[in-house]
Design a protein around this nucleic acid. Structure first.
Lengths: 208, 208
DNA sequence: CGAAAATACGAGCAGTTACTCGTATTAGTC
DNA sequence: GACTAATACGAGTAACTGCTCGTATTTTCG
């Protein structure tokens, strides 16, 4: 109802935006989305509360921007992992390695991402802000599934992708929290679970 | 540091405690733990904020008591489902049905339980309050695993139980949210995932 | 240079939160 | 019936929340 006028950002402003996003990501990692106050974000970013609101309309908008930044980063991580290789022809085990390893590396490197990813107890505002992220991830998995199992009905495919993503999301916090050998063991368990779930759905060429 | 003196509850008090717990469970289901205010719990329970604190030291203590109540209810649900039948000899598919069906029924009937169960984004206070619940559930699964696969090292068994519980916890909200055919389909998916994960660990008598 | 836009500040606002406290009522016990 | 402990009330408190606003500085650009 008021000004929809877009602001012409200068370089300084773009830098600030990134600093704010970094601060928010760190705080989300440490105390979660709800418990992170906008004043705390501003303080960690080294600016005043007023300045923060020069760049973001509200707290939810920060989560949204963060979500966009994460989709982008994840897209790149996966793109480099897949390269030109066709997703349809790979053995399932290799495919899981190629999809999960970058994702795990990403989550280990960005513990704050946890707050943004699909998890069952997401506060209302956050859920709205990260819906595109969730959909991007589930859609990505569904399209891989479509390539490998063209005979699977679309609804089943979508549901399987969702469940697969939820399983990964469920185990990921333990993986990120663990270290060394225990982390490796948990990663193995996750892959076993994913393999056990997807192998029966997979293209006949794959399993025995 | 102050009074550790236990209060001698009268019947009226015990009734109030249950009313408070019911109110809290309902609100947790509707808006989540963090967003539920203690004043709102008191109001729904039909008492004043002051009265609430006659029975619970703080908000976290309410979650704790609720957690205890849920462990109890769940224990009963599972006990009646198992009866005398030995957990060690059952086919894996049957075992999964017997463990998961009552759990799903319980969660559908108690949507508020969602806030109390293991989920990755649990606020700090709630996590502390419900740790016993998590441990009870994981321990239960681990002991079933121990009965069926005695050769599995204890550490592996514990880890597998944890991952199994996390998978269930991850898919459960979707199941509770869905209805009719979609819910049934999601339950099937969950069981497929659990079967795929546990079958390779299971006692040799079981698979093929 | 000079004006407009972008960036910056931080005290402060209205609202909410978990929780307290002084006081009143009710129930159990001798 | 009297004494004590349990239950009940609800206005109040201090802290904190997301966010605003008046004002000041810096940058861009003609």
């Amino acid at each position: 109802m008021s000004d929809a006028r877009p602001v012409r950002r200068q370089e300084r402003g773009l830098r600030r935006i990134n600093e704010i996003l970094d601060a928010a990501l760190g705080l989300f990692a440490e105390v979660g989305f709800e418990a992170t106050s906008t004043n705390a974000i501003a303080t960690r970013a080294g600016i005043s509360p007023g300045s923060l609101y020069q760049f973001f309309a509200n707290k939810e908008a920060i989560a949204e921007a963060l979500s966009v930044r994460l989709v982008e980063a994840l897209r790149e991580a996966h793109a480099s992992a897949f390269g030109m290789a066709s997703v349809a022809d790979m053995p399932l085990g290799d495919l899981l390695d190629r999809m999960l390893d970058p994702l795990i590396a990403f989550r280990v490197a960005n513990p704050g991402a946890k707050a943004l990813f699909n998890n069952p107890a997401m506060p209302a505002g956050l859920a709205a802000a990260t819906r595109p992220l969730q959909e991007a991830v589930v859609g990505r998995v569904a399209s891989v599934l479509a390539a490998r199992s063209p005979s699977l009905p679309a609804a089943d495919r979508q549901r399987s992708a969702l469940v697969g993503v939820q399983i990964v999301a469920a185990v990921m916090p333990s993986i990120v929290a663990a270290e060394g050998a225990e982390r490796a063991a948990l990663i193995t368990e996750l892959k076993k679970a994913m393999y056990g779930y997807f192998a029966p759905l997979d293209s006949p060429a794959e399993h025995r």
